[in-house]
Amino acid sequence: MSNTQPVAAPEGLHPDGGPSARRGNGFGVAALILGIFSLVFAFVPFMSYAAIFAGAIAVVLAVIGLTRKFRARGTAVAGLVTGVIGLVLAIVMTTLYAAIFFGISKTVNDTNKAAATSHTVVYSVTGAAQDANVTYSTFTSGTSGTEQSSSTPLPFTKTITVKGSKDSLSFNSFDLTAMNGADDTGTISCTVTVDGKAIASQTSSGSFAAVTCSGTN
């Protein structure tokens, strides 16, 4: 009596000759999970950097999963698709977020620099008066005020420093008034300059003659 040894089925076939069932694909599952992660977090600022990394890994794992024999390929294909889309979206959104962030930072820095810029305002009164009265506007820590110099011999010059952007200076009115005394019968003139640019000037003459120079940058 002879013993018949069972013959092993070729790789990929059941013992009855049919194709073997495909087994699960761990690489495909991992690729799909990472691909979904990259899709979701591609739209989240800062997390989009992690989404780029996850999308790239998903693509690599999906390719490995597709090359494995006798493994289900559905999850690997899905992982490859989500990984590629997530990777592309994450790169695009990260670039967009970076452009917005640096744009805002530049605007804030430019605004701060402009606000800290110093501008020179010069009040000048000329003439031969020995008893003139001069009043001019001041700006200290963003607060406007006035100062007066009485019984002042001419010429008179006062320099003040104002901080702010060129645009913000346009909201400030720089005012200068001067008047001859009772015994001052000559000419009296006033001039206001901002950063070397004259913004107002006026001339008058005679006792108690008054001049007013007022303007904005």
Rank of each mutant, 00 (worst) to 15 (best):
K163D: 04
V122N: 14
T67F: 10
S165C: 07
V211E: 05
S48C: 12
G26N: 14
T82W: 03
S124L: 06
F174L: 13
G145E: 15
L34F: 08
G65M: 04
S48M: 01
G86C: 02
V84W: 01
N112Y: 08
Q202R: 13
A72S: 12
A114N: 05
V194E: 12
L87A: 03
V121E: 04
S2E: 12
L13G: 02
A62N: 11
A182G: 13
G74M: 09
V162G: 00
F208K: 11
T82N: 09
G74W: 04
D110N: 12
N25K: 01
S170P: 00
T161P: 05
L89W: 09
I33L: 14
L13W: 00
A115V: 01
S124G: 00
I100F: 09
P153D: 03
G12M: 13
Y123S: 04
G65K: 05
G17D: 01
L154A: 10
P19H: 10
N3K: 02
G26I: 07
V84L: 15
T4L: 05
A21S: 10
A72N: 15
P45W: 12
Q5Y: 08
Q130C: 00
G83T: 01
Q148T: 15
P6D: 08
V77N: 10
L87S: 01
K69G: 11
S204Q: 15
S168E: 08
K69C: 02
P15N: 06
S204K: 14
S48F: 10
F37S: 06
D16T: 07
P15A: 03
Y97S: 02
S173F: 12
G196T: 05
G181N: 04
I36P: 02
V59R: 00
V60G: 04
G86M: 01
N112K: 13
T185E: 03
R22Q: 09
G12F: 10
F102T: 10
V59A: 08
F43I: 09
M179N: 07
A76F: 06
A51S: 15
A58I: 01
A54V: 03
I85G: 03
V44S: 10
N133W: 13
G145C: 12
A90V: 02
F41M: 11
E147F: 05
S149P: 12
I199F: 08
T203N: 10
L34Y: 00
A200I: 07
L13M: 14
V84I: 15
Q202G: 00
A30Y: 00
F102W: 11
G35D: 04
S168Y: 04
F156T: 10
N133M: 04
T203D: 13
H119K: 13
V192F: 06
G26P: 09
S20M: 08
T135M: 11
S204I: 06
H14Y: 08
T193F: 07
A72H: 11
G28S: 06
G74L: 11
S20T: 08
A128K: 10
E147K: 14
A78W: 02
K106G: 02
F37L: 08
S105I: 01
T138G: 13
S2Y: 03
F53A: 15
L32A: 09
G83Q: 01
A98Q: 05
S150V: 11
D175I: 09
